[in-house]
């Protein structure tokens, strides 16, 4: 067990080092949220909806990091020819993925800094009325949701080369379903149904509620649903990791870029 913790910690460290010098990473947490906050504030700034623009920009960066970068990790391993080697070592893929994901969550969380800064300095807008405890809890629940989704998706990238381009193409769609920059209640009903099986959606709803709405029972419900869905993903993930060990070895695609 300690050996696995050590392996995950080392994967985290390696991933942090690689990311720190990776321009895509730095684009993802620094520039990308910035552009969206500017767009968001330009559109939403006037009507007291600036929380959606500022936090939304941060959420976009956070999610992008956890989701795209998490997938990118596997894709990068493929390109550098190391995927085969990490699959061939006596440490389960999930241990390595967890370590790497923690690093992408760290970088992702950084997204909130440029988002808040540009809001404050360029538009003189900030997020008001934060209710600290529910806000913090919602943030943790959201982080857990991101983590579970990304862990669950990772084996798909190892199994199929095209999986990454599919999820990549879906990235912006997730901003919609997650209600990152606008409440999902304005979406067509069928999309709201789709969004409701999406764990981050509930956490994001709680997060925005904590910037103005009074604390109440509904928070517990949102958190519980989000956590339950996240755990559901983990169950699916468990099967996927079992599958990947067989599938990837059967097709011989690990070595292909």
């Amino acid at each position: 067990m300690t050996a696995y913790v050590r392996a995950a910690a080392r994967a985290f460290e390696m991933s942090m080092k690689l990311r720190a010098v990776n321009p895509f990473t730095n684009f993802g947490w620094l520039v990308f949220p910035l552009i969206f906050v500017v767009l968001g504030l330009a559109l939403l700034g006037g009507g007291g909806k600036s929380a959606y623009a500022i936090l939304g920009g941060g959420l976009l960066g956070y999610w992008g990091m956890a989701y795209v970068e998490g997938g990118n990790e596997i894709q990068n391993e493929r390109w550098s020819g190391t995927l085969e080697q990490i699959m061939g070592c006596p440490t389960p893929l999930v241990v390595i993925v967890v370590g790497k994901l923690c690093s992408s969550l760290v970088f992702g969380a950084l997204s909130f800094f440029p988002a808040i800064a540009v809001g404050y300095f360029a538009f003189h807008q900030s997020v008001q009325n934060i209710d600290p405890v529910p806000f913090a809890v919602s943030f943790l629940v959201l982080t857990f949701a991101f983590f579970c989704m990304a862990v669950t998706l990772a084996p798909l990238y190892a199994m199929w080369r095209w999986a990454f381009s599919v999820t990549n193409g879906f990235e912006i769609g997730v901003y919609v379903l997650g209600g990152f920059m606008f409440p999902i209640s304005q979406l067509p009903a069928w999309l709201q149904v789709v969004a409701s099986v999406f764990a981050p959606t509930w956490a994001v709803r709680a997060l925005y509620a904590a910037t103005g709405q009074p604390f109440g029972r509904q928070y517990a419900l949102w958190w519980a649903v989000s956590i339950a869905l996240s755990c559901g993903y983990l169950v699916i993930g468990w099967f996927l990791y079992r599958l990947v060990d067989v599938r990837a070895r059967a097709t011989g695609q690990l070595a292909l870029a």
Partner: peptide
């Protein structure tokens, strides 16, 4: 979808 819904939310 994203930008149109964002636009709807704003305007």
């Amino acid at each position: 979808l994203f930008f149109t819904e964002l636009g709807i939310f704003a305007t």
